[in-house]
Design a protein around this nucleic acid. Structure first.
Length: 574
RNA sequence: GCGCCCGUAGCUCAGGUGGAUAGAGCAACAGCCUUCUAAGCUGUGGGCCGCAGGUUCGAGUCCUGCCGGGCGCACCA
């Protein structure tokens, strides 16, 4: 709708040029938008304002010329007005909108899908939690944002791979192994009872592990004991010697933790296409970290200083140069991250999106610099920051403490509020703004909670169809239905909103902003509820009933599609 | 001290990539169920868009400075 209008305006300007009414030295950018206020038409354009200066005419005069040159071959315009300083306001005939309902009926779940992505190969890496503990609520937000974004990107024609990066190389996994081993020793009585239970080490989204292995840094959660108990139950394990047991605790511990993480994610409806192990980068015979550093060295971007090896990231806009290999000979995490990102591009991805905790924002310039140093455009790496979540209960902050028996893990939050409410709430704000997650509020099934408001609209419409069927209503093919009977203002409002869905999805995709969908859904659900309350869908007049049923069928479809893009279910009964 | 993000209604937040008279939910108050789901609807009040300049036909949106809040500034991961 918007696009065809844009074309009409462009050809009107072309016609004006041909007749000499306008000079048009440079083709103007024609932007068509939906005016905020009622009464200013269905669409408006400001071209006349931007063309006034180069044309040497007043904006209103330019608008007048454009208007005079518009050809309405299909008869969609009710009228065109020139308003204010030179806006062109277009008022469409109601009949011009009805095609949307047919379109939705025809395309079903594909309505809104597009090919703007052009099949571009993209990878989205998110969550990437250390395999040292269960996922918590912060990971949950990253998972919800990342997964919905992937759904939206796919829907708009991008070729997407979801990747989880496993940090299984550094000291944190040594800590995990040591933790499991110690739990084992305690459970078998080899060492004394547990120390005074220390608060579980709960990491924030994005990870940061302190210091070297040391009992003070071991993980103490009950999940560690669970893993140890499972090992104890295995006679083959108990027959191993101490060194073998330690190694098993580490390796099998990682595997089990990843299993738990994966289970939680699946339950959250998040599925990764690929799990990439950091160890891969250090594979014998093909050490990718060495290879990456060598490549940078060949480009003359590496230098030695103070026995350390540095990358000249300042050449690409970073504030200071960064160490790749420390003076003790060990690689920095940055070095393996460079190798990792280099490898992503080598796998053929044209664009790579990383989703990080917002506390890592300082890391972006050096990573972008590294990507450039490797010869890529800095825009080929997009970093999406996700702010931390404040977990609350009844307005009071919840301490992230296992000992206090408060909920911290994503599983526990899902137990309490459910996956749908959890995901929707995470997507209720833009990713980079702080989010208060109030367990009581999210759990509450009232109007305070937008999730149910939207889902209810879907369930309600399903119910309408059930009732209609029970009454013996048989919906004829849409070609036999007179949609022109939909003349109520509420009906037109809804139809216009439906027709805006494809461009909304496109905008959410290109700007990487899944939260736009939650706002759209609340809007659409609101219009539907108001309409439903005020008017009967199925009444005495069969022709009108049929038209209205097709209208609400379209609403139900778009609500379902949008919810699916958010990873939230569209219930048929509530 | 330097860098990034944020500041919009009492609260929580939306406001494509500058457009016309500033948006929603919640909270508050007053109403609506013999009729397709009241997890719903209707109405009312509520604003110096942090402050001060600048850019232009036009600024919540872009630029500069200041104030206030968050985060980050390792040869950690």
């Amino acid at each position: 709708m918007k696009q065809s209008l844009t074309d009409i305006i462009i050809s009107a300007i072309g016609a004006a040029k041909a007749s000499g009414a306008l000079k048009v030295e440079k083709a103007p950018v024609v932007l068509v938008e939906v005016p905020r206020e009622q009464g200013r038409g269905d669409f408006a354009t400001t071209v006349a304002l931007s063309m006034a200066k180069p044309e040497g005419k007043s904006p209103r005069d330019v608008a007048e010329v454009i208007k005079a040159n518009i050809k309405d071959e299909e008869g969609v315009f009710d009228r065109i007005e020139i308003a204010g300083p030179g806006f062109l306001n277009f008022f469409l005939k109601p009949s011009a909108w009805m095609g949307v309902i047919r379109d939705i009926d025809e395309r079903g779940a594909c309505f809104g899908a597009s090919k703007v992505g052009g099949g571009k190969r993209m990878q989205v890496e998110f969550v990437s939690a250390n395999p040292t503990g269960p996922l918590h609520i912060g990971h949950g937000r990253g998972a919800a944002v990342g997964d919905s974004l992937c759904r939206i990107l796919k829907f708009t024609g991008f070729d997407i791979q979801r990747e989880f990066y496993i940090n299984d190389f550094g000291s944190q996994v040594e800590n995990l192994g040591a933790s499991v081993f110690m739990a084992l020793q305690r459970l078998t009585g080899e060492i004394g009872p547990a120390l005074e239970p220390v608060e579980a080490v709960v990491e924030t989204a994005g990870e940061s592990d302190e210091e070297a292995p040391d009992t003070a840094n071991l993980y103490m959660g009950e999940y560690i004991n669970d893993i140890a108990r499972a090992f104890m139950a295995d006679p083959a394990f108990m027959a191993l010697d101490e060194e073998q047991k330690k190694a098993y605790c580490r390796e099998e511990g990682i595997r089990r933790m990843l299993g738990l993480i994966s289970d939680t994610l699946e339950r959250f409806k998040v599925h990764f296409d690929n799990w990439y192990s950091e160890r891969t980068l250090y594979a014998e015979g093909s050490n990718l970290v060495e290879a990456a550093i060598n490549e940078l060295e060949e480009k003359g971007l590496v230098f030695m200083e103070g026995d350390a090896k540095w990358l000249r990231t300042t050449q690409f806009g970073d504030d200071k140069d960064r160490v790749l290999i420390r003076s003790n000979g060990q690689n920095t995490y940055f070095a393996s991250d460079i190798a990792y990102h280099r490898e992503k591009f080598q796998r053929g991805f044209e664009e790579v999106i990383d989703i990080w905790g917002a506390d890592h924002h300082g890391y972006i310039p050096r990573m972008k610099a590294a990507v450039q140093a490797l010869g890529h455009d800095p825009e080929d790496l997009q970093v999406l920051l996700v702010q931390l979540v404040n977990l609350m209960r009844e307005g009071q902050p919840v301490k992230m403490s296992k000992r206090a028996g408060t909920f911290v893990t994503l599983d526990e939050v899902m137990d309490e509020v459910g996956s749908d409410a959890c995901r929707f709430t995470f997507l209720l704000r833009r990713a980079d703004s702080h989010l208060d997650f109030d367990l009581e509020l999210v759990k509450r099934q009232t109007s305070e909670n937008p999730v149910y408001y939207v889902q209810y609209a879907h369930a309600r419409l399903c119910s309408v169809f059930r009732q209609a069927t029970e009454k013996g209503v048989v919906l004829p093919p849409i070609s036999d239905v007179d949609l022109g009977l939909l003349t109520l203002p509420e009906e037109l409002t809804i139809i216009k909103k439906l027709s805006a869905f494809p461009e909304l999805v496109e905008g959410a995709s290109l700007s990487l902003e899944p939260h736009r969908l939650t706002y759209y859904l609340q809007d659409l659900a609101g219009e539907l509820h108001a309409y439903y309350f005020k008017h009967r869908i199925v009444g005495d007049d069969p022709a009108l009933s049929h038209a209205r049923l097709y209208l609400v069928k379209a609403v139900r479809q778009v609500v379902a599609t949008a919810l699916t893009l958010l990873g939230v279910t569209a219930p048929e009964v509530m």
